[in-house]
């Protein structure tokens, strides 16, 4: 999609003002890429009624740089919400798209991102059915913010959520950790390290659908995003009310992520991911699940086990067993990971 307007090649405040420039942006850039199935523009999209349960999710996306190795903010915004649906075992039905553009954003960048949104939506078998665009003054936004919401239909009868977690369950991770976080840090360039590593950004629909199709009794799924494995596991353990023990040597971390984390003093367990999930299911089904997960990502592994409810013997919601066999509590980190010297 190539589009530019006679007034320049960057976004202006007028593109969000509801006038001629707004119309032009929608008709010449957004609609040709994303379209509406019936070609009708209206205030609300009409969706066909679905039998059974629906899943509904929303998330906002902020990333710098907007285009990074292995993806861009557009693909991230589509797959992020689709992956949230996938964590309920849902199949996407419709997607909304809210764009907040900063004055001065190059139209070429917007074109790239919108084309990427379109490709990701097609890949997931979903259409953008409604959307909104606003423009903020230069300096009031980081180029481009995106919000997406997604509706999905639930075809199974499981309740895939923390309360379904049981003592003795296996805890799996669908692939190696930290690629997205390291790829983004490298792309920001200010720390001066280089890598061929790409973000792990990917749709989790195929592996989840494979697990469901095999009839596995999924107790909980959780995609790993900003806080990495650490916060995902902590959330599951805390909201399920069970203690989880992780085997540190079993946690898959690639050589490059490990190298970058050592160099900068960062924790791979707290690094961001965008195409990885935790799967909790009965131990007896762990091998079958791993076989399916490894068809997508060969590094998938069982990393731990659900213990009993938290007790004096298990004082921590999540504990790691080190290579030397000693237990320690999982560290959640302090939010922003800062490179350190010591």
């Amino acid at each position: 999609m190539t589009w530019s307007n006679g007034d320049g090649d960057a976004i202006q405040l007028g593109h969000g003002g509801g006038g001629r420039l707004s119309q032009q942006l929608i008709r010449e850039l957004l609609l040709p890429a994303l379209g509406t199935s019936d070609g009708v523009l209206h205030d609300a999209a009409l969706l066909p009624a679905q039998p059974g349960r629906l899943a509904f999710t929303t998330d906002s996306y902020v990333v710098r740089p907007l285009i990074f190795p292995g993806g861009d903010i557009g693909r991230l915004a589509v797959l992020g919400s689709i992956n949230d649906l996938a964590m309920a075992g849902a199949i996407p039905v419709a997607l909304s798209l809210g764009l907040i553009l900063e004055e001065g954003l190059p139209i070429a960048t917007l074109n790239t991102v919108v084309a990427s949104i379109q490709r990701a939506a097609v890949e997931c078998g979903v259409a953008v059915v409604t959307g909104d665009t606003k423009v903020v003054e230069r300096g009031k936004g980081d180029g481009l913010f995106i919000n997406t919401s997604a509706v999905g239909r639930v075809d199974h009868n499981l309740c895939i959520h923390p309360p379904a977690v049981m003592a003795g369950d296996a805890v799996l991770v669908s692939g190696d950790l930290g690629r997205h976080g390291v790829a983004i840090l490298a792309a920001r360039d200010h720390l001066g390290f280089r890598t061929t590593l790409r973000s792990d950004l990917a749709s989790l629909l195929p592996p989840v659908q494979a697990l469901l199709a095999a009839g596995l009794e999924l107790h909980c799924l959780r995609d790993l995003t900003r806080g990495g494995l650490a916060s995902a596991i902590d959330e599951i353990a805390t909201s399920a009310g069970w203690a989880i023990e992780l085997q540190e040597p079993a946690i898959p971390v690639g050589a490059e992520v490990s190298g970058a984390c050592q160099l900068l003093g960062l924790d791979p367990l707290a690094m961001a991911n965008e195409g990885r999930m935790v799967v909790v299911l009965p131990q007896s089904q762990a091998e079958e699940a791993l076989t399916l997960l490894r068809q997508v990502e060969s590094s998938a592994a069982q990393i731990g086990t659900v213990l009993t409810a938290a007790s004096p013997n298990n004082p921590w919601p999540v504990q790691l067993r080190s290579e030397l066999g000693v237990l320690r509590p999982l560290d959640l980190g302090q939010g922003e990971q800062l490179p350190r010297i010591c």
């Binding site: 280089r194 490059e256 160099l263």
Partner: peptide, 9 residues
């Protein structure tokens, strides 16, 4: 210098 494939000057 390569740290597991990550390069730094």
């Amino acid at each position: 210098v390569s740290f597991g494939g990550v390069l730094r000057q």
